[in-house]
Structures are given as C-alpha cells and as structure tokens.
Design a protein around this nucleic acid. Sequence first.
RNA 1: GCCCGUGUAGCUCAGGUGGAUAGAGCAAGCGUUUCCUAAACGCUAGGCCGCAGGUUCGAGUCCUGCCACGGGCACCA
Length: 571
Amino acid sequence: MLYREIEDRLRAAVVSVLPEAAPESIQVRPCPDPQFGDYQSVALMQLARQRRTNPRQLAQEVVGRLDVSDICSSVEVAGPGFINFRLRPDAIAQALKGPLSGGSLFFEPAARPRTVVIDFSSPNVAKPMHVGHIRSTILGDALTRVMRLLGHRVITDNHIGDWGTQFGKLLVGWKTRLDPAALVADPIAELERLYREVNTASESDPAVLEEARRELVKLQEGDEENLRIWREMIALSQTQFDAIYDRLDIAFDHTLGESFYNPRLRSVVDELRRRGIARESEGAVVVFFDDDPQLRDHPALIQKSDGAANYATTDLATLEHRLTTWKPDLIIYVTDGRQQLHFQQIFAIFRRWHPDVPVDLAHVWFGSILGPDNRPFKTRAGEVIKLADLLDEAEERAFAVVSEKSPELPEAARREIARVVGIGAVKYADLSPNRQSDYVFDWDRMLALSGNTAPYLQYAYARIRSIFRRGEVQLDSGTPIVLEAPEELGLARGLLEFGLTLEAVVEDYRPNLLCTYLYDLAGRFARFYEACPVLKADEPQRSSRLALCELTGRVLQEGLAALGIKTLEQM
RNA sequence: GCCCGUGUAGCUCAGGUGGAUAGAGCAAGCGUUUCCUAAACGCUAGGCCGCAGGUUCGAGUCCUGCCACGGGCACCA
C-alpha cells in the first residue's frame, strides 16, 4: 500500500524533527483535488499550532528529512502548510502488479483479527417483514461481509421476537377464530388478522383481554397445547423469514430468539439484586444510575411489578450468553436510533456487572424510515409496505429495463439479470445514505436503476467481462503496465484506495463509504472506457489496459460482494 | 422540561481527526454511437451549507444561543 509507505516515512521524518510527536497523529490521506497531488498530510499544521511555530517552516524542515523519491515524483509544501505527494506512475504500475500475481487485492487483512458477534434483522414472529426491517438486515449483513473480508471472525445472530405478551392474543385468536384455509394460503397474513381482531375485541371487551392474559400465563407455565401452537406460529414465521433471507442472500449462523433466554431471566435479576446493582422500587426491580449524569434521570427496569421480566432483562441474559459462548472482542447491535437510551442502559448495567470483561459493545443505530411527508412511513391504506412486495416490485422494474436494453436475451436470462439488478438496487439504496440520517422512503429512489445505484456498478463490471469474453488473456506480474493517459492514471489511483476504504467502513460501521468509493471507481472506469480503447490498442498498451480492466473488475466484484450485492457477466 | 439526532442545489442525498474554489444523482437544457455493452460519457444551469454570535491563519465541520422537524424519557419491545 503506497499511502501506508508514505505515511510511515513521513512519521519517521516528523519524529526526527519533533521527537515528542505522536506518530499516530500524523496521517496521510487522498488529496481532495488531483491538481494538488495524490496524497496529502495536514498534520504539520496541527503540530505547528500546538507548538506555536510556523507551519510552513516546520513542514519544510520535515520534507528535508524525507526521502520518498522512489515512490513520489514530487513532494511539495503548499498553502498554509499542506504536504502534497504526487505518485510516480512507475510506482503505481508496480503496485498494480501484486494483485495480478496472486497478491492481496489492495487491502491487507486486519493486523489483529477480532471475534465479533453481530445482532441484526430481528423480525417479530407472526408479523410480516416490512420496510422497517430492511435497514437492520442489509446494514448488518454488509458490515458482516466487510469485517469477514478483512479477516475478522464474525458470528451472526438473529435475535427474533418469539416471546412476549402478543402471544396471549394470538393464542386466543388461534383457538377461537382460525381460518385453516387462510392459514395455508398466507400464514402470516392470517396470524396478523387474528392478532388484530383479538386486539380490537379486547379494547371493548375486558373479558377478551383477561382470556388473552390467561392464555399467556398458560404458555409461560409450559401448557402443552399452547406450546405446540406457539411453536407452530414460530415455524410458520421462520419459513417466511427464510424466503426473504434467501432472496436477499443473507444467512445467519444462529437464530436464538428471545424465548431462548427465558429460563435465564430469573437468575439475571437475582444476581443483579444480590450484587446491589439493582433494587426494588415501586414494586419493580430497577437499576439506578446516580453517578452517571447521562442516565441519572433514566433508571432501567429489569423486572416489572407483576414479576415478569422485560426487554432489558432479556438483553442482559443474551449478552451474558454471547460472552460465555463465543468470547467475543466486540458485540454489535444494529437497530434503529430510537433504542439508543435502551442500549446505553444495557451497556452501563453490563459494565457494573462485569467490570473486568474487556469486550467492546457497539450500538450501530440508523435513522427512521419516513414517508414523503416526513412522518413515519405508511401507505395510503395505512399499511406498511411488506418487504416481499418491495422486492417483487424491484425485480419487476428491473425486468422491464433489461427487456428494453437487451431484448435479444432469452427470457430466463433476463429474469435472472432482473433478480440480481433489482435486489442489488434495493440494497444499495439502503446502504448508500449515511446510516444515521432519517430515511425518506420513495419507490422511485429505492428502485432507481440509473445514476448512483448498484446497476451502475454492475454495468461497469459487465462491460469489463464483455471485453474478456472476446479473447483469452494471460495476465501476471510480467504483464507490462504503462500509465500515460490521465484516465489510466486516474483509474489506477482509484484502485489503490480500496483497502483504506474497507478499513474506514469497519472503523465507523459505515458501509456508505464503500458505496461512495465503488461509485467513484466505476466513474473512473467509465471515463477510461470512453477514452482508451483496450482490445484495439497496440502493445504494450493493450496488455496494460487489460490488466487495468481485470483489476477494476476484481475490486468492483469484491467490493460489491462486501455489500452483499452480486455481479453479472452480462446485462 | 431534559436527553439523542437531523436541517447542504427544485427533489433525494454525500461531505473520516477543522483545511485549499462545497460535491453527486434525479429532474431541466445542449451535445456524443461506422469504434471493446449509450443501463454510458461530456457540457450548461442551479448554493446567505436553518438563523445569530463565538473560537483561529482557516468553520458545512468545533462551542454557545435561538428556530424548525424526528425520536426517546419506569412496568411495550
């Protein structure tokens, strides 16, 4: 990695001038504008400020002790004290040769691989998966893939909502109102109907509510009939989840729902009480955070006054289980931003409970899905959009476009292309915005197939494959690389940033950085493709450009795969 | 009331530790195909970065105060 090499040497030069400077504070990053150079460092300006010296002078002094002449054609101090580096084309060419001969693809595996448990998706039993589940599911999967690409050991766990008070009403509905034919036709719709009907009935009739409560208690006490129905509802729901995950190409290592932790809840509460972390208050068991200004006014309930545990209790038991089972270095929760306080509380309780356990806990939250009116999203009928319908629509729109662009392909091929393009578009639309922004749902934006979208990236890849379909080529470290045209240099420089991008994604849990990078790279390729003939070029340009195409194709494919998006040989 | 976010082009959004003239896509307008996929490329137009102060060589970015919107704040998850 050329930027790493420059950074290392710059650090050494800075330390030789200022022995007390912290090397980590000196960084090199891509130049915002290529007219200034390829990489730049602003660290000297900050160091000069701390030391109240002239930044330009300090930068000059450091540059005087810096030898990067084998990598850079120029090193300049510019403006108030930037250090700008311009790479030598032959150094870039050399950097491209590694991956051509089996070396790693512009990124290095993590120096210290971590064991990571990641909790995402978490749909509820007896409810359809809707657009509200899409962000957690797609974001969690993308983070998993990027971390695995960098060599981390990642364990995915789908913490499904398979326990709770809703089952009282569902059991009443199942026993008194079930339509067996409807259950066969669309199980989730039928379960949803049952819940709604009983819920409505219970609002006007206290007897129904009481009945639901009794059924719930029976379930909790292990009544065989109720357990059987409950398990069937879970199985029906799981089938639906699996169908969606299958279409999205997402798999979980474990699916341990809330019910799995049920037997452990009591001991969690007991232990927290015994240790004096929790105490009784107003009939409930509560953890107070008097010494924490952030949480002082927000005590956490771990047992309700009726003796039942709640969400916090389950999450604590889950945390404990994950810790003892997998011994992770890091646990990641991918949920919506509304749960920030909840996770602050859980993490704070956990730190008191296990002060010596060196696990990092991260709540990777994302903004809400809103409608065009900036309010929580609903369709006109007041129904949320089901995920399955969204995916259907995506594939349908993509099919129309494929059929228009490539009418010569047989229908089966067009269907397959539409599937990959449609699902890719949905995933990319979800991953490319900053995750913390609220999310305005819009069919056309979500399913767009041109501009900054997955199909644009897939198209760049398909064009590359099309070139290689026209002839076998042998590419290896002996392949000549000549970078002369600005489009060739631009593309080659783009390739070098892949690793930097992957690291940034993991650092801040932000897959949108990878989207931005790949979109920029595909743009560089498109410009190269317009300006530089490949197959018709004379040697050594021809081989060199083929090598550029090959490497670009690999980065696009690997990068998209890290987002959970597939590529196509043809589209 | 307190806490967490958000406010950038007509629309949807990017803008790692403060850095050089604020960037895309869509929509609008004008071009490019005897040539490896035009699902592409080029050009034009479009901006008191919510408002007002402050910190400093330098603020979309940091601090304070307002305004607007979303969310959260003990027995839902």
